[in-house]
Amino acid sequence: MSDEQQSGNNVPSPRDDTGEVIGVRKGMFGANNGGDTSGYGGLVRTVTLPGASARPYGGPGGVFDEIADELEGALEEQGIAPGNALVKTVVDRGEITFHVAREHLVQVARTLRDDPALRFELCTGVSGVHFPGDKGRELHAVYHLRSLTHGRLIRLEVSAPDADPHVPSLVAVYPTNDWHERETYDFFGLIFDGHPALTRIMMPDDWQGFPQRKDYPLGGIPVEYKGAQIPAPDQRRSYS
């Protein structure tokens, strides 16, 4: 095996922390309200997402290091300390994720789009994720950026607490995010500051609540059969 392959895809980059805890699982068979006779009732497992990686990040042909170097250099040129803008960098399953501090998001995205060595021209929209167990950073907005010039794909992740669900809008940098941000607002209540018209897009305008948050019920109804009733999918017992 050549040196390039060694430093490339095959060796996972080292991690220097254990990752963020997003929840705790208890028991095994979903019997949460007493009466667990399975013997697994006392089982406790913490759920952690992959933690920050240390250099080298690897990637095919060391491309992740290249992207990170260019991005940090470009941010320094603009007078932003990379450590402040990029909270952490996670390399996991052959994908690189930059966790960006929300106040620097627009600047980082603009740099990624405009810097000739980066050139991430295409944003594939924003995907919201709600982690109620991740205290202080419950709402995550995940952006995937694609560079057609260099054929690369990276992920930006921003988080906001439930108490202050504000994230700057990227519509000025990537106009394609217009509908995507409206959708994420509609489903998660994440407010994108600076969006030209942040209104509901999927749900009716007078809808109460943000339906794809974890604290919003699925909203199904029990299904009746002859002599029996099956509860809605979210009311059934599930494996934990």
């Binding site: 997003i22 952690t48 997402l49």
Partner: peptide
């Protein structure tokens, strides 16, 4: 029950 998938995200 199905299979378990390790925590993380992918695109």
């Amino acid at each position: 029950e199905g299979f378990r998938v390790p925590p993380g995200q992918a695109y």
